[in-house]
Simulated assay, not measured.
Amino acid sequence: MKLKFPLIAAFAAMLALTACGGGGSDDNKPVVSSPATLTKTDITVGTGAEAITGKRVTTQYVLWLYDDKAANFKGKELEKGELPAYVIGSGRVIPGYDQGVIGMKVGGKRTVLIPSNQAYGPAGNGPIPGNSGLVYEITLTKVE
Rank of each mutant, 00 (worst) to 15 (best):
V101N: 01
G103N: 03
K55S: 11
T139V: 02
T139F: 03
A19W: 05
L78M: 15
N72C: 11
N72L: 14
V87S: 01
E77G: 11
Y61M: 12
F5I: 14
G75F: 12
Y66I: 10
L38T: 00
A9F: 10
T59L: 06
K142F: 08
A10W: 02
P122S: 14
G81S: 04
Y97A: 05
V106Q: 10
A70R: 08
P35W: 03
M1S: 15
N125R: 14
K69G: 12
K40I: 03
G130C: 05
F5R: 14
G81D: 08
C20H: 05
K55D: 00
I88T: 03
L3S: 15
G24H: 05
G24L: 01
V32S: 05
A119N: 09
P84E: 14
F73P: 13
L113W: 08
K29W: 01
G91K: 11
I94E: 12
A70L: 09
I138D: 02
R110G: 02
W64K: 11
G126Q: 11
L15H: 10
G121I: 02
E82T: 15
Y120I: 13
T59F: 03
L78F: 11
A85Y: 08
L65D: 09
L134M: 03
A10D: 01
S116H: 14
G75Y: 09
V57W: 02
G126F: 13
D68R: 14
A16S: 08
V143R: 02
K142R: 12
V87K: 05
